[in-house]
Amino acid sequence: MEKGDRVWEVFIQKKSGLAFKHVGSIHAYDKKMAVQNARDLYTRRGEGREIWVVPAEAIVSTPLDQADAFYDPSEDKVYRHPTFYEIPKEVKNI
């Protein structure tokens, strides 16, 4: 597998005064590319005034209310993306 690009989460503020809203994610290799890719993908129809991009692994999330029902509290990543989890090279089939 190639050493990859990174996943960034995208937040858009439609108009001044409104809150930033999470719209999805993009891939990019660096910050400049991340902002450009986010703009190209999520504001093609003029949907935004300002864009934030955040490397997905930088996001720390709180446990859900139903943490005991669903959730391993040590997991604070937003989702299960494999690159968030560093597996040592010696481990196979993962």
């Binding site: 891939h27 190209d40 993908l41």
Partner: peptide, 11 residues
């Protein structure tokens, strides 16, 4: 080279 760039170029 990747899909995002396809979009950038067609833009």
């Amino acid at each position: 080279p990747f899909l995002e760039e396809d979009i950038a170029l067609s833009n």
